[in-house]
Amino acid sequence: MQVMQQDVKARVRAYIVDNFIMGGSADHLKDADSFMETHVVDSTGFLELVTFIEEAYGFAVDDDEMVPENLDSLDNIDAYVRRKLVAA
């Protein structure tokens, strides 16, 4: 599957804005911001985020991949998803 550079980040950002940020003002959410530290996503929110990624990109997120290095910012998700898609 071909994924354009900006595509993953924009799509996940849109999902986060739609589902977790009131009023859709995500301008202050920077690509490197930790969702956890900025309180954008909480513990059950991460489970929903994982389900979204699995459905959107068609791969399963393994238990051991559910770590902040893969999921706790737009940058991290972007890198993780593209790594997984290349491997697939």
């Binding site: 956890m36 996503v41 909480d42 513990s43 238990d63 559910m66 999921l71």
Partner: peptide, 9 residues
């Protein structure tokens, strides 16, 4: 721990 968001961690 900050939370239980990442159980494996």
């Amino acid at each position: 721990e900050r939370s239980f968001s990442f159980p494996v961690k």
